[in-house]
Design a protein around this nucleic acid. Sequence first.
DNA 1: TCCATTTGTCAACGACTGTTGACTTTCTAA
DNA 2: TTAGAAAGTCAACAGTCGTTGACAAATGGA
Lengths: 195, 195
Amino acid sequence: MIENQPKKPSKSDRTRAQILEAARLLFAEHGYDGASIRDVAAHASIDPAMVIRYFRSKDELFARAAVVDLQLPALRVIDRTTIGETLIRRFLEIWEGPASGPGMAILLRSATSNEFAAEKLRDVFGNQVRPVVAAVADPAADADRRAGLVSSQLLGLAMCRYLLRLPPVVALSHDEIIQNVGPTLQRYVVGEDVS
Amino acid sequence: MIENQPKKPSKSDRTRAQILEAARLLFAEHGYDGASIRDVAAHASIDPAMVIRYFRSKDELFARAAVVDLQLPALRVIDRTTIGETLIRRFLEIWEGPASGPGMAILLRSATSNEFAAEKLRDVFGNQVRPVVAAVADPAADADRRAGLVSSQLLGLAMCRYLLRLPPVVALSHDEIIQNVGPTLQRYVVGEDVS
DNA sequence: TCCATTTGTCAACGACTGTTGACTTTCTAA
DNA sequence: TTAGAAAGTCAACAGTCGTTGACAAATGGA
């Protein structure tokens, strides 16, 4: 009899959720170093010591905050000619839609100076992006290379548009992104490739 | 009679250069926050106070270390069908060749959590990448958008290959990068575009 | 009501940070 | 040789950081 979720949403659960929400917001905006535990506590209207009580350390808080589930669609079932478009559409949903949290922003903001975040980001690539691309890559041996190229374009777009906020990339409409980046991803995934 | 370079390479000049070299190395590897003045001083085998004496503050030291000159080739004179290839070749030289310093790595490593680095990176885009693309973009009005797309791909590739060190992207050979990313850049710069 | 557990408050710790000023050593020009 | 500038050393400052432990308040079941 394993009961993972005892029915009472005790008071501590709410506090715990508040801390986590504040942490996700501040980590996404200022990165691991830039968001102090005191900042998180202030943003959650709570004492800094409570942050440590609920999450044992800043590292563990960051680990809890930096969870990412891209929920990428299976590419096998859709039309083979619209793979690139499907990918970039899902990408825009993840970043700008309300459902997906700031998980990717959290990782990307800290990955350049925090080895844990970098490793986590490599994990997201290996366990979420790569399998989806591998399922449709023509010679299976090319799967890694194709997935890597896809990641480089998507990650660069995210950097320019959401983190660096490069004006001309911010100005791009959804349709412009889909019609320009879609074909790139399409070629990276199923295009004829170099040996 | 303006003499910008008095002939004597005084002792202080050498020390100054040592500090700057150590700073560029550490900033490129650990970012602005991750590289302390004490680290830089230790790496240059001098006292931390000297770093402040020669450069007035850490911010100023970082500003001096984060200078970038891409020396992008003028795209007008070359064959219009090899623009993408030319760009990606130059990109690889900048990152892996011995001539260009770690300037781009310094900026990219800190741009996600340091507003000065972010602004400087946007400057590099606006003053070095954009003009080169604008010179050949077909409707001049598209120049910004095209330059932005080019930047997103190049910046993403740099992130994955040199900072994040994503294994399949690190494993790519120069030829593979040229033959895969080249066409992408070609289309971004001179391909038919969406309104 | 009473007591034990939970939840929250407060002050402080040691470590690290950028930066400063007083001091000594070294070099250079007269 | 000597005075003055340049170069380098050292200890300490004020601030921030993550983290801790002692203590008070609130809560909830018996």
